[in-house]
Design a protein around this nucleic acid. Sequence first.
DNA 1: AACTCGGGGCA
DNA 2: TGCCCAGAGTT
Length: 219
Amino acid sequence: MLSKKDTQFAIDQMGELFPEAECELVHKNPFELLIAVVLSAQCTDALVNKVTPRLFEKYKAPEDYVRVELEELEQDIRSIGLFRNKAKNIKKLSFSLIEDFAGVVPETREELESLAGVGRKTANVVTSVAFGVPAIAVDTHVERVSKRLGICRWKDNVRQVEETLQKKIKREDWSDAHHRLIFFGRYHCKAQSPKCPSCPLVSMCREGKKRLKDQLPHG
DNA sequence: AACTCGGGGCA
DNA sequence: TGCCCAGAGTT
């Protein structure tokens, strides 16, 4: 596995490659952030940002989502993938917020994870972005990059990936590191054809060296 | 552990 | 135009 020092170096390099890497969700309150992150499951933030302005104009509070007809909510988010699941989850989640949390978005990961449509990744994003609790949300980009580079082990589950990253990265750097890993994974260390030949990290990357040697797909 | 949900992006 | 992407929930 990559040492703490090498991990830090790798993440610095990602920052140089993508200086623009930062949070793409710009929502003022925790409730809107929560809805936005739930919507963003399995699709890009850019796509979510297309529907949220209209959505948040129409729905201000959990009560608004509880009251609306499911079909109407589905229509309001239909340009996003998995809109039927998401509409259902948002209605359930809003109901739970009112019933269990007095209409206020809870601040702990455990409480957030009890809400429909909120898994570990979404919960981590909400606690870190809305409540300033440092966390590294492990999405598929973060997981893939961490495994390819050898920051964590191949067989690690999401939770182990998260723990390893938090151990190897200084707490005050978690937020930056998170976004750098995501940008690097999305645009450079892509799932299908990672850009190994032009990657500043191949020399320390087990997977990169292997892909080049074995002529595995790479761009 | 595998499958499902579904539109968007890219080859 | 068809393959691949991205999380959470269900079985």
